[in-house]
């Protein structure tokens, strides 16, 4: 297929729109997660969705995307609550809390999954597509859903930009200023839950983390200003979504989710190497020239000294 065919194929157009919005919104919310040192929260929440999806299936007995999403969202909220309880009421650190919640939820999820497989519910296929994601199975209503959630995410981030900024930078100070820190904390995590839930269907549990982390880190290379970083991160996310989808439709048989992730990685490498100031090339160059200048100056001084 060439590009024109892709653009005119209605199904692909929908998918393209969906992944574009997904990349945009997870890039935006991901930059706050990065600054709050919660990059892997997305990974945890994606894994934590499994028991939620299983319970949704056990209760309703039907394979319906909307029920699954509701289940995943509720499980995500429970996970967020547990993470904050663990770090608040014990000396367990953030990273360990994420790991504990991730593996226990996923462990319980696997137990439920085997229960479902063995019981009269029968064919559970469709559940495991959630593990690896299946962009091709997205239908119009899924895309509408993604767009709606993305709009809400981006709108909220713009509205609460000031508060989120302060909270990510200095929670203690934010509290001193009278901001409802605990509430805002949960609020940001809830937004991440939302991004994860809409993302799982497209890229799957394991790769969801990437959409939240990689664009944000890439953006961080280019700027020291938060609002520029957020915008850039959204753009990187969007570009990854679009390029991943385009490549996967033009080459037969390649899954979209992993390609979106790999595009994001490509943007990351681009930033890592070429960003001014913080990029590898520029800092190597700076270090070399610094060393050269320095030794030149030393030579000069020594020369003066002896002459």
């Amino acid at each position: 297929m060439n590009l024109l065919d892709i653009m005119t194929d209605p199904n692909t157009r929908w998918i393209l729109l969906g992944t574009m919005f997904l990349g945009l919104s997870s890039g935006v919310i991901g930059s706050f997660a990065y600054l709050r040192k919660q990059s892997l929260l997305g990974d945890t929440l994606a894994h934590a969705a499994l028991p939620g999806i299983c319970i949704a299936f056990m209760l309703t007995g039907v394979k319906s995307t909307s029920f699954f999403l509701i289940g995943a969202a509720l499980a995500g909220l429970a996970a967020v609550f547990l993470i904050s309880v663990l770090t608040r009421y014990s000396k367990i650190k953030q990273d360990a809390a994420l790991g504990i919640v991730l593996s226990s939820f996923f462990g319980f999820g696997i137990v439920m999954l085997t229960q479902i497989q063995q019981s009269e519910y029968g064919n559970q296929s469709g559940l495991d597509t959630f593990l690896f994601g299946q962009t091709a199975s997205m239908v119009m209503s899924d895309v509408y859903m993604m767009m709606a959630v993305s709009f809400i995410l981006i709108f909220t981030c713009t509205l609460f930009f000031k508060e989120f900024k302060l909270l990510s930078f200095d929670p203690g100070f934010a509290k001193g200023m009278g901001l409802p820190v605990v509430f805002l904390d949960y609020f940001i995590m809830m937004l991440i839950v939302a991004a994860v839930v809409i993302g799982i269907q497209a890229v799957g549990v394991v790769l969801m983390a990437s959409l939240l982390i990689t664009p944000a880190v890439s953006a961080r290379y280019w700027t020291e200003r938060l609002h520029i970083m957020v915008i850039l991160s959204g753009i990187f996310g969007m570009l990854s979504g679009v390029s991943g989808t385009l490549i996967s439709t033009s080459v037969n048989n390649l899954p979209t989710g992993p390609l979106i992730v790999l595009s994001a990685t490509a943007w990351f490498f681009f930033s890592l190497l070429f960003a001014p100031k913080r990029g590898v090339l520029s800092s190597v160059w700076r270090r070399v020239s610094l060393k050269k200048n320095h030794s030149l100056e030393q030579e000069r001084r020594k020369g003066r000294y002896t002459s």
Binding site: S39, L207, A209, T214, N253, G257, P258, V261, R278
Partner: peptide, 26 residues
């Protein structure tokens, strides 16, 4: 090179895993 530890972990494993899946499907 200045990336936070957890973000570095996230980038590396998702990229490699994605590459693995692409290999499998190829």
């Amino acid at each position: 090179s200045g990336v936070q530890a957890d973000a570095a972990i996230g980038i590396v494993f998702t990229s490699l895993f994605a590459a693995g899946i692409v290999l499998v499907s190829l």
